[in-house]
């Protein structure tokens, strides 16, 4: 069936099928999907049915559960179901707080090893990871230090995109702040390419944050950005992710969540750390 088949619109996700998919995605990726998600799920998965020439969502469910290529197809499904919207310098008040208050603090703590690492957990197409790298370089506090920014996302496509480091207009909601323009190159086609200096700091990998199988490869980092990820997860998945992030943060390291997210009713393991414009979470120093 072609991509433009007139039959595409006939593919309807029935309520009972929707429940099955919700259960499946909850188990695999911890996605929190309520009854209201039925139509968006139908819209987001429909292309996969067309691509696989399937006639119903029930058939697609069988593919995801039992087909020999179920694992690869699950990646496609999760990719379709997750939100990839992000952009450079998002939530600038928090980034300002990071650069002006947290970074000097971290630099002071690590002045002996001259080594800093950051993790953009759920980095989507990489804008946040590159933003962090630009902020760190532009601060001038860690020149010639060994700096790493790890970016991870559950979507293979997003990670590949992030590695390319080439972005269109939609990745920049406003013009690049003057202080950072030297870290980006404008291409002839109007797109913007991440410059070599910040690209060299960034490393990307594919990870499902609800699985502890791969997250350990990040090693212990000094700060974690996990913004606008927890809001899509179930309570149980949220607890597992926070536990993972706690493990991967060095004692004294900080965790930054999105402006609408908090650890209320999730964990008490972190300390609240007050900044001028923001609140962040800190793994208490000296914790094992």
């Amino acid at each position: 069936m072609s991509r433009f088949s007139p039959f595409r619109e006939e593919l309807e996700l029935k309520p009972e099928e929707h429940e099955l998919f919700c259960e499946l995605f909850r188990g695999i990726a911890g996605l929190s999907l309520g009854p209201q998600s039925r139509f968006s799920m139908e819209r987001r998965l429909r292309d996969r049915l067309v691509a696989l020439n399937l006639k119903s969502f029930s058939e697609y469910y069988q593919v995801l559960r039992f087909h020999p290529h179920a694992r690869a197809e699950m990646e496609e499904a999760i990719d379709a179901m997750t939100t990839h919207e992000t952009y450079f310098f998002r939530e600038d008040y928090q980034l300002r707080a990071f650069q002006e208050e947290l970074l000097p603090l971290l630099a002071k703590e690590k002045k002996t090893t001259r080594r800093l690492s950051f993790w953009s957990a759920g980095c989507s197409t990489g804008e946040e990871a590159y933003t962090i790298a630009a902020l760190v370089l532009a601060s001038g506090l860690v020149d010639d230090w060994d700096v790493r920014v790890y970016g991870s996302d559950i979507s293979k496509k997003c990670v590949s995109f992030a590695r390319r480091g080439i972005y269109g207009k939609s990745s920049f909601r406003s013009s690049i702040p003057v202080a950072y323009t030297s870290y980006f190159d404008r291409r002839a086609d109007g797109d913007v390419e991440v410059g070599k200096s910040i690209r060299a700091l960034c490393h990307f990998g594919q990870m499902n944050l609800t699985d502890a199988d791969k997250t350990s490869v990040v090693g212990q980092v000094d700060a974690i950005f996990c913004r606008n990820v927890l809001i899509y997860l179930t309570d149980d998945a949220r607890k597992r992710v926070i536990s993972t992030l706690y493990e991967q943060l060095r004692p004294g390291g900080v965790l930054m969540l999105g402006h609408s997210e908090s650890l209320l009713n999730v964990t008490t393991a972190f300390e609240l750390y007050h900044l001028k414009e923001d609140l962040v979470y800190k793994r208490p120093p000296g914790t094992p």
């Binding site: 790493r148 991870s152 590949s160 990998g205 594919q206 990870m207 791969k214 490869v217 990040v218 090693g219």
Partner: peptide, 11 residues
């Protein structure tokens, strides 16, 4: 070591 370890998560 760090680069190789992280590469286990390569897509």
């Amino acid at each position: 070591r760090d680069a190789v370890t992280f590469a286990v998560a390569d897509e």
